[in-house]
Amino acid sequence: MAKYGMIIDLQKCIGCNACTVACKVEHNTPNDIHYTQVLEYESGEFPNASRTFLPTLCNHCENPPCVPVCPTKASYVREDGIVLIDHDRCIGCGACILACPYDQRTKVEDERTVFPDGLTAFMNNAHAAPPKGVATKCDFCYHRVDRGDVPACVETCPTRARIFGAWNEGETPLREHLAGHNPQGLLPEKGTEPNVVYID
């Protein structure tokens, strides 16, 4: 079975947020809910100061703390390692939201996806939007992966800073991209073993 993961090349990312929008369009996420965020932080002092762009998304952890805390088993791990939420089962208790060290889960308080006046031209879309009341997050675009495509954010990224694939399978297994780098997951001390790793 393929195990999926993503490598994010921080050297390449320019913080353009094309991925953020691509993900929104792909998933009809409600207002102000992002499955991927291009975070930033500053370092150094003028004139030796700089900014770093740090795209984040669900890490599809090997050892996902969000799953065992879920009382409904709405949060689960697919065989290929993709961590999903079954919106039809979720009670919206928020436990998984508190369990995720990466703040990657959001509860849908207002499910409207577009204009604040209630005009939802895009609700009747090719993809369904998450319903009100559930927890939601990045799903690794499993619907695209299942048909052999890469996730929306990966396809869109103009610098190819995001590389998606199976760690040990395919033409170029994802692992091969790590050669010569020192890949790092976020917050390793949390023991989550992220499948999204960063190279500098």
Binding site: H27, L84, I85, A126, H127, A129, P131, D139, H143
Partner: peptide, 9 residues
Amino acid sequence: MQSEKIEKQ
């Protein structure tokens, strides 16, 4: 299954 993301029938 998560919400279906298929083209409508």
